[in-house]
Amino acid sequence: MDVFMKGLSKAKEGVVAAAEKTKQGVAEAAGKTKEGVLYVGSKTKEGVVHGVATVAEKTKEQVTNVGGAVVTGVTAVAQKTVEGAGSIAAATGFVKKDQLGKNEEGAPQEGILEDMPVDPDNEAYEMPSEEGYQDYEPEA
């Protein structure tokens, strides 16, 4: 019985440690998101679009440190934060509304985080759909 109880105690310690790591990862992701939003706020009209992409990228980098179902929630929060940063930029006159959601080359930025393969159960990952990809044929 002692062996059984000791095993359960060790398992509990492992769960607590994993929860603490997840909590730490979420806190880091939130900190990076805040950094990115402050970065966007300090940019001029020309830099705002690039700044919004930076927020998304920093958040995406930190999301990889967070495991399990938390990833889905962090990704949703990050996307809403990026959308909010863009709205703030438009409201303050840093950028025109028609410039939001495009990178410096004018290509749409939507789907940055949505296409990231995420499995809350950590069982399997699927690649994003290939609808947006084109076949590449090298020139002879």
Rank of each mutant, 00 (worst) to 15 (best):
M127L: 10
Q62V: 13
K43V: 14
A29Q: 03
P128E: 12
E130W: 12
A140E: 11
D98H: 11
E137H: 04
K6C: 06
A124Q: 11
K96G: 02
E13A: 11
K6A: 09
M116H: 07
K12W: 09
D121A: 08
D115T: 10
A11C: 00
T33L: 13
T22H: 02
K80Y: 06
V48R: 02
V118N: 06
N65L: 12
G68E: 02
V15D: 00
H50A: 03
P138T: 08
I88M: 09
E131P: 12
V49W: 09
D119L: 03
A140R: 12
K32R: 06
A89K: 08
Q99I: 14
Y125S: 14
E130F: 07
G14W: 05
K10L: 04
I112P: 05
K23Q: 02
T44S: 10
V77W: 15
G93A: 00
G36Y: 15
S129I: 03
D121M: 06
A140I: 06
V70T: 05
G67I: 11
E137N: 11
V77P: 03
A124W: 10
V49C: 08
M5K: 07
E131L: 05
G51V: 14
E123R: 14
A89R: 10
Y39L: 02
E123T: 11
D98M: 10
K60Y: 07
G101K: 15
E35Q: 09
D121G: 10
E137Y: 02
E13C: 12
Y133G: 09
F94Y: 13
Y136A: 11
E28C: 05
E110D: 06
H50T: 08
G86T: 06
D2L: 09
V82D: 03
K10Y: 07
M127E: 13
H50I: 12
E28L: 05
G51Q: 02
G73T: 15
G73C: 13
T72A: 07
E83S: 08
K12I: 09
T59L: 05
L8H: 00
K97R: 09
L8C: 01
Y136W: 12
V16G: 06
V15H: 00
A91V: 04
V52T: 00
D115Q: 11
A27D: 03
I88P: 02
A53M: 15
S87Y: 13
E123A: 06
E131W: 11
P120E: 08
V16A: 07
T81K: 05
Q79T: 11
P120M: 10
M5V: 12
A124S: 10
Y133C: 08
K32Q: 07
N103A: 09
S129F: 14
V66A: 07
K96L: 10
A19Q: 02
E139N: 08
Q79M: 03
I88Q: 04
A78H: 09
D115E: 10
G67M: 02
T72V: 14
P138I: 02
V77S: 02
E137P: 07
N65A: 03
A78P: 00
E13M: 00
S87H: 13
A19V: 08
M5S: 04
G86R: 14
K34R: 13
K58G: 00
G73D: 05
A124K: 08
D98E: 05
G106H: 11
D2F: 13
K97I: 14
P117T: 11
V26W: 08
T22P: 03
T59E: 01
K58I: 14
P128R: 12
M5P: 00
I112M: 10
F4S: 00
K96S: 10
A90L: 12
E57G: 10
E137G: 10
G36V: 11
E83D: 09
E20A: 10
G73K: 13
E126V: 03
V77N: 03
T72W: 03
K23A: 09
I88F: 11
S129N: 15
F94E: 05
G51N: 10
D119R: 13
K6V: 03
G31V: 05
A11Y: 15
V55C: 06
K80I: 10
G67K: 15
A90D: 02
L113G: 12
A124P: 12
V66L: 08
G86C: 13
T22N: 01
Q79H: 02
K10E: 02
M127S: 11
E131S: 11
F4H: 00
A17I: 12
E137R: 10
A29I: 14
A27R: 13
K80L: 10
L8W: 15
E126F: 11
L8I: 00
G84K: 10
T72D: 05
V71A: 08
K96T: 04
T64L: 09
A56S: 08
L38S: 01
A85W: 03
I88K: 03
T33D: 00
Q134W: 11
P117Y: 07
E28T: 07
P128T: 10
V52W: 09
V55Q: 00
T92M: 11
D98W: 04
V16Q: 12
K10P: 00
T81G: 06
V15Y: 14
K102W: 14
V63T: 04
K97V: 13
S129D: 05
D135T: 12
V95S: 12
V82A: 03
E110P: 03
D2Y: 13
A90N: 09
A17K: 09
D121S: 12
T59A: 14
K23M: 15
V66M: 13
G132Y: 14
A89Y: 14
E114G: 13
G7Y: 11
A78Y: 09
A89I: 15
E20T: 13
A107D: 09
V55H: 02
G106K: 08
A17R: 15
V77H: 04
D119C: 06
D121P: 09
G47I: 06
D135S: 11
G68Q: 03
S9D: 08
S129K: 05
K43M: 02
K58R: 01
G101V: 10
V95G: 02
